[in-house]
Design a protein around this nucleic acid. Structure first.
Length: 505
DNA sequence: ATAAGCACGC
DNA sequence: GACGTACGTGCTTATA
């Protein structure tokens, strides 16, 4: 008989070993057959587990599954056997560092977080569901009234026909690749100038999305035994090295809109002796760009704790920082964001609602003022061309076989990946190291508070109230010291506390 | 079952 | 002149 976490750990190690980024440049490993949910929070025999592996096929995996059977029943610690197989493979790919120092130590951290889960306020969600249903219905009726016809508003196909054939709102309506009219948010927002029905549709979309994906779905995923929601984190799903989360995905809980944000009130501490504590990195990806590129201006802005978007705007527009307007800052912020993703003038123009010429001027100025960043972007592309991959600070690799493609589109995509992956991946390395550190510190100092969620640059804790005062600086210290960035770029994290996730954030 | 279209997060 | 912002999960509808 194995302990549940024994199985879980082996499953996740396995997952990691098979990962795209570590071993196999061709494919992805994705084995969640040992997820905590299948284990039902009880010890379980290995034979039973393997019976539940379900639809995971693939020759290599089946061979290794046999090995689990072979060793696991006798000895819960099968790591050694796996090591013999996988360590040489990792050494060949030169990725053992990120495995041994980041992914493997993270395994028990994630299993603890999954096991812990999070409490959900079901009554609150049920009430909110009714509100959203009524509001959605109101909007829906308004749409039918405007259109003079009843149809299925949930169908983009039917909606497109009503908007562009019946109401003829836009003679040049864009179509999707399948020849259907596009009716996404961008299209509808432009249409709102022509006809008020667009706003009703947008509102309807928002309310029904919130209801179906979150408000009604979350209570159904509460575990009967624990009364809590237990997500599953994947270490081998995201090519850049980020975690993923599913069943439910707790990394895409709404925050942007007023009504969406409400849902965060349903994430609550385990009882009235606890509160939620949330800590997040400030501007982490931009700090990493600055540090890795060594860009003098951007590094200095961070060292002096300046508002980086304001500093950027001052440089791009050639004015003093005091003279930067809100509008200038907004545009600069958008450029900073776009730089990380290798965005061009078209994308920036689209995003900001400005002309392509203006966008081009902004980008040209940016490249001139931030030479280090411009050089860094070129360096990453050249490195990828030469080696076929790019890597993060911890040596995580992303293979980019299309980097030398003669096809403009395909190559351009690979080039953006060459720029973005080391940044996004290094941020992932950093928070993973921080999680291991926090986890260890909580154990060592016998805290009763638990780390329960990770959302890429944020960690959430179910914290005993009397521990909060000590817990907060501990979390911040672990996060800020997990990885020291070069060029003196400081890493800053911020922390908050509240009776729900919205208040804590 | 699978694809398309859409929308939520960082 | 192409193409047009990185990485995900999951809902509903429509078609096979």
């Amino acid at each position: 008989m194995l302990k549940w976490y024994g199985c879980e750990i082996k499953g996740k190690i396995f997952d990691t070993l098979l990962a795209h980024s570590l071993i196999d440049p061709e494919g992805k490993g994705n084995m969640d057959w040992l997820s905590a949910k299948y284990l039902n929070y009880e010890p379980i025999h290995i034979e039973e587990l393997i019976g539940k592996k379900g639809k995971n096929q693939g020759n290599m995996r089946d061979v290794e599954l046999e090995k689990i059977k072979e060793y696991a029943v006798e000895d819960a610690d099968v790591t050694l056997q796996f090591k013999e197989i996988f360590i040489p493979k990792m050494q060949k790919c030169e990725v053992e560092k990120v495995f041994l120092e980041v992914e493997n130590p993270l395994v028990p951290v994630l299993t603890d977080m999954e096991y812990e889960g999070v409490r959900i306020d079901v009554d609150f969600l049920n009430e909110y569901s009714k509100v959203l249903e009524i509001e959605a219905r109101v909007q829906e009726e308004k749409v039918y009234e405007s259109a003079g016809i009843r149809f299925n508003l949930g169908s983009p196909k039917q909606l497109g026909e009503v908007l562009f054939e019946r109401l003829k709102l836009d003679p040049k309506a864009r179509k999707t690749k399948t020849g259907q009219y596009a009716t996404d948010e961008n299209v509808l927002r432009k249409l709102a100038v022509v006809h008020p029905v667009a706003d009703n549709i947008l509102a309807y979309r928002e309310y029904t999305k919130l209801r179906s994906t979150y408000v009604d779905a979350l209570p159904l995923l509460i575990n009967k035994k624990t009364g809590r929601v237990h997500t599953t984190y994947g270490q081998a799903a995201v090519v850049t090295g980020r975690l993923n989360s599913n069943n439910p995905n707790l990394q895409n809980i709404p925050i942007k809109t007023e009504r969406g944000r409400e849902i965060r009130k349903a994430f609550i501490p385990r009882d009235d002796k606890h509160v939620l504590v949330s800590a997040d990195y400030s501007q982490i990806e931009l700090r990493i760009v600055a540090a890795l590129s060594g860009d003098a201006v951007m590094c200095e802005a961070f060292r002096q704790s300046k508002d980086v978007h304001t500093a950027t705007a001052a440089k791009v527009y050639g004015v003093e920082e005091e003279a930067v307007t809100k509008e200038m800052r907004r545009k600069a912020k958008s450029v900073n964001f776009g730089i990380i993703y290798g965005q061009g003038a078209f994308g920036l123009a689209e995003n900001l609602g400005i002309s392509r010429t203006e966008a081009k001027t902004i980008i040209d100025n940016y490249k001139k003022e931030f030479e280090g960043i411009t050089r860094y972007m070129d360096d990453m592309i050249n490195y990828a061309r030469e080696h076929g991959y790019v890597q993060t600070v911890m040596g995580r690799k992303r293979w980019l076989r299309d980097i030398n493609s003669s096809n403009f589109t395909v190559r351009g995509y690979a080039e953006r990946n060459a720029i973005n992956s080391p940044i996004q991946g290094t941020a992932a390395d950093m928070i993973k190291l921080a999680m291991v550190k926090v986890h260890h510190a909580l154990k060592e100092k016998a805290f009763k508070s638990k780390m329960i969620l990770q959302v890429h640059d944020e960690l959430v804790f179910d914290a005993l109230q009397e521990e909060v005062e000590d817990l907060q600086p501990l979390i911040l210290d672990c996060m800020q010291s997990a990885m020291v960035l070069p060029n003196g770029v400081p890493v800053i994290a911020e922390v908050g506390t509240g009776i729900n996730w919205l208040e804590a954030h």
